[in-house]
Amino acid sequence: MPELITTIAFAILMASLIMVVVRLMLGPTLPDRVVALELIAAIVVGLIATYSIATEVASFLDVAIVMALMAFLAAIGFARFLEEGGARNA
């Protein structure tokens, strides 16, 4: 894979990561932040896949699987926390 392609992909993914982190800081409500966290996990999965292509090491895909799993569990946990009556607006 030419280095230019992976560099461009890394740049795009980092830019989107920064934008989502801005949304994570802004909020304004907890569900908004949870959505941002989920998208951050998806972008990190993309970063891991790009890194796996750049270094030609396929084992990084395992990390991507674990990342996706953790993101799903975190989303479910946050949603249950919200519905059972946790902090509403923080």
Partner: peptide
Amino acid sequence: LLLGSLLMFLAAVGV
């Protein structure tokens, strides 16, 4: 790869 990155960029802009 580039298409996937651009789609995630789109998602980030939307969020």
